[in-house]
């Protein structure tokens, strides 16, 4: 209705300006291009500004990423002579990455990254799913306080616990019965092993899993669970047969977030791993620049390979990633 009114007004304006003499097109309304500068009533931007904004946004978002890719396809001379787009496309950097002198270390780094990410995720999910269920479904004293304490642990920076964690890894981890002095298991020193990283990454991924999963569990209608009690299920069976299957998308999203977090981590990895046997991808790639000279070709190729899984996952599972982001526990 409002738009009709707009059109009527514009028509009137056009008539008074005497534009109808110019032909049928002008009589219908105002010139077509003016539509581009007028926002519709429920919108903010007129189409012209919208598209200018979108083009700028796209260029600024994609240009550096495309530059990373085109650089990885360039020869060394081209990189050093400032060609933004290679005149001759070559896969040489990728070939060197996987078969060259440092290939063994790079492949080892990929394997380490996968190992650390997978074990961190499995460990955090298996423990966290029970805690999340308790927070979401069982009423107990100090429930909200503890949940916010979990959130705080998730958000606190790694630097807060870095030093004691380092000493813990140096001395080996003890599994004991608290307050009794009984030691069930004493591990060897864990520095320069992937297990140090799995344990360190659990400090932020376990709280994150609990926070996110508790949120997902709360969205499952309580009635469904209560119906299963009537059918004679106890809580544990209700959890495994009703709540968990229904929150499968949420569980998958949480697992993916945990994988991405572990894949990206740098500070713990930098502090705890010095040997090639234990280095993860971010460390290995950073060493193309610096420790072994400045090989921009290898760096861009390695960086592109390492970024491909998270970029692909984020694009494919966009909806889940965004829902996880807005759930408010992601370290910004």
């Amino acid at each position: 209705m409002l738009r009709q009114r707009d059109r009527a007004l514009d028509g009137a304006r056009a008539t008074t300006a005497g534009e109808d003499a110019r032909g049928p097109r002008a009589r219908k309304g105002y010139p077509v291009w003016r539509k581009w500068f007028r926002a519709r009533s429920t919108d903010l931007f007129p189409p012209f500004y919208l598209w200018v904004g979108l083009i700028l946004l796209t260029v600024f978002t994609l240009a550096p990423f495309v530059y990373l890719f085109t650089s990885s396809l360039s020869e060394k001379q081209e990189l050093l002579s400032g060609h933004l787009v290679p005149h001759r496309v070559t896969l040489d950097n990728y070939v060197r990455l996987f078969t060259g002198a440092g290939a063994g270390d790079f492949i080892h780094a990929i394997r380490n990254s996968v190992t650390v990410a997978v074990w961190t995720t499995v460990f955090s999910m298996v423990i966290g799913v029970f805690a999340a269920y308790a927070f979401a479904r069982i009423r107990f004293p100090l429930r909200m306080t503890s949940l916010f304490a979990v959130l705080a642990m998730q958000i606190l920076p790694s630097i807060s616990i870095l030093v004691p964690m380092y000493v813990m890894m140096r001395n080996g981890v003890q599994i004991d019965l608290p307050f009794t002095g009984v030691v069930l298991y004493q591990s060897p020193p864990l520095l320069d092993t992937v297990w140090a990283l799995v344990i360190a990454y659990t400090t932020f991924s376990l709280p994150f899993v609990i926070w996110l999963l508790a949120g997902y569990f709360q969205t499952i209608p309580l009635e469904l669970e209560e119906a299963s009690y009537v059918d004679g299920c106890n809580r544990l069976r209700a959890m495994f047969q009703v709540v968990l299957p229904l929150s499968l998308p949420g569980i998958a999203a949480t697992a993916i977030f945990t994988l991405l977090g572990a894949w990206d981590e740098f500070m713990f990895a930098n502090a705890f791993t010095q040997t090639y046997a234990s280095k993860t991808l971010p460390i290995a790639i950073s060493e193309f620049i610096g420790k072994h000279g400045m090989d921009w070709g290898l760096m861009t190729a390695g960086g592109f390979i390492a970024s491909l899984p998270p970029v692909a996952i984020s694009l494919l599972l966009y909806r889940y990633i965004v829902s996880g982001m807005t759930a408010g526990g992601v370290k910004g």
């Binding site: 978002t61 990423f65 790639i285 970024s307 970029v311 694009l315």
Partner: peptide
Amino acid sequence: IIIIPWALLTLVNGLL
């Protein structure tokens, strides 16, 4: 497409 920069590894972003 706007999610691409966010998904890039932090360290690769630095190197880039």
